[in-house]
Simulated scan of single mutants.
Amino acid sequence: MTGPAVILVGPMGVGKTTVGELLAQRLGTACRDTDEDIVQAAGRPISEIFLDEGEPHFRALEREAVRTALAEHTGVLALGGGAVLAPETRQLLEGAPVVFLDMDVAEAVKRVGLDAPRPLLMMNPRKQWRELMDARRPLYTEVATAVVSTENRTPDEVVGEILDVLELKQQ
């Protein structure tokens, strides 16, 4: 098989990067985060890209970052929260080992406080988060091989479940 060993999708603050790094360590491979790829390529934070050039420009950068990472990376890949919005991204994920890391709004409040500098949560963050998840949850589920809840669980527990459900061998 070519492409990433595991691809993590889910909402902002669910722990894709944290879980991804730990999972990669347990699998003896590297972790890559497409949001970090975008920040490195653009030389500035995602929030600035959103504010200066708008969401459509950011989404174009995101589609390219995902396409490149899926073609190049063989370890664990964490996608940005909105990456699944693009039909072409969802098509690229078909047949891939994708894990949807899930949580509810109460858990999101605990994790990100919903007051962090997240461009899509600037006004009424709880309401915005619920609306984002209402729109995105079906897309996360559509691309997922497995759904793993992160609620009230440590990153180690989440990684253990991912390894079990995908039947992956640890190093």
Rank of each mutant, 00 (worst) to 15 (best):
P56S: 09
L132V: 06
G13Q: 02
V39Q: 12
R59E: 11
Q91S: 13
L77Q: 05
A83Q: 04
M133A: 04
Q91Y: 02
L92G: 00
L114V: 05
A78F: 03
G20I: 04
D102H: 06
R44V: 14
L139Y: 04
A60G: 10
G54M: 11
E142N: 08
Q128V: 00
A116G: 15
S47N: 13
L23D: 00
T18W: 04
V19G: 02
M12E: 04
F50V: 07
A108N: 01
T68M: 09
R130L: 12
D104K: 06
L121V: 04
A65K: 01
D102S: 15
L79D: 02
I38E: 03
L93K: 03
K110L: 12
A41H: 13
T74A: 13
K110G: 08
H73C: 08
V112M: 11
S47T: 12
V84W: 01
R136T: 08
G81A: 13
R63N: 13
A30M: 08
I49W: 05
E94G: 06
R126A: 09
E62N: 05
M12I: 11
P45A: 15
P56R: 09
A86D: 15
R111Y: 06
D37H: 09
R130K: 14
V66C: 07
M122W: 00
D115M: 10
D134P: 01
Q25K: 12
P125I: 09
D102R: 10
G80W: 03
F100C: 01
Q40T: 14
P125F: 03
H57K: 06
R59V: 06
G75P: 02
A41N: 12
V99D: 04
A41P: 03
A96N: 02
M103P: 01
G75W: 01
G13I: 01
V14I: 12
L70F: 09
G113R: 04
D37A: 11
C31Q: 04
D104T: 11
T29P: 01
L101M: 14
H73N: 06
N124E: 14
D104Y: 06
K16R: 14
V109K: 12
I38V: 15
I49S: 08
R137A: 14
E88Y: 06
G82M: 03
R90H: 11
A41E: 14
D115E: 14
P117C: 10
V105G: 01
Q128G: 07
L61K: 03
L92R: 14
Q128N: 13
E94S: 12
R111A: 07
L85H: 09
